[in-house]
Amino acid sequence: MHAAIILFPGTNRERDIAIALERASGRKPAMVFHRETELPAGTDLVVLPGGFSYGDYLRSGAMAAHSPIMAAVRAHAARGGLVLGVCNGFQILIEAGLLPGGLLKNATLRFLSMECTLRVERANTAFTSHWQQGATFRAPMAHGDGNYFADDATLDRLEGENLVAFRYVDEHAQATEAANRNGSARNIAGIFSPDLRICGLMPHPEDLVDPMMGGIDGLPMFESLAAA
């Protein structure tokens, strides 16, 4: 697994992702600056990490989506390469049109910095193969614009084609309104592209990959990617 992590001005979770990937795969990922126009040869996985690229100007992710490196990321995705977007990375994938929908301001208008529980909605993918279908795991989240929105036709298509990756759930694995802190449509926390090669999610599995961090709940994502 050769991974490349993209750095935009304002990205701040790149080291977290690097630690998680290295722990799972034993290989140091490459760091690629947004002004680059090519990915390192042999890149299998591109990760767009969390942060506040371009200070969230205009809309979260809107500026980064048009960075020079994004043409290479699109080409990588078109070739069937793996792409993971976490938090601001998910927002960038949406703004780039690589995943459908939009991420609105949290319904409460509050920046949410807390732990949430996610349910794995589809386990047979490159991102989730090391979880059981329907498994739940804890993940930290920290975002102001994580309220997933799409029109009903798009939501029906995502569900019909089994492209919902993760949902916010309560301690009984139920997708309740109370568990859906940011107000996302149908409790959606993360989605896949139709070919299952692109995954975007708001919470941060990379921040629970070591007992020193308080748990290894997020490690299966990186073990899945390392085995992909």
């Binding site: 609105l104 301001k105 029109d151 107000g183």
Partner: peptide, 14 residues
């Protein structure tokens, strides 16, 4: 402007 039907929490708060 947010499209009709899209939740506008800022508008609601105002």
């Amino acid at each position: 402007l947010p499209k009709p039907g899209v939740l506008d929490p800022q508008g609601k708060a105002i």
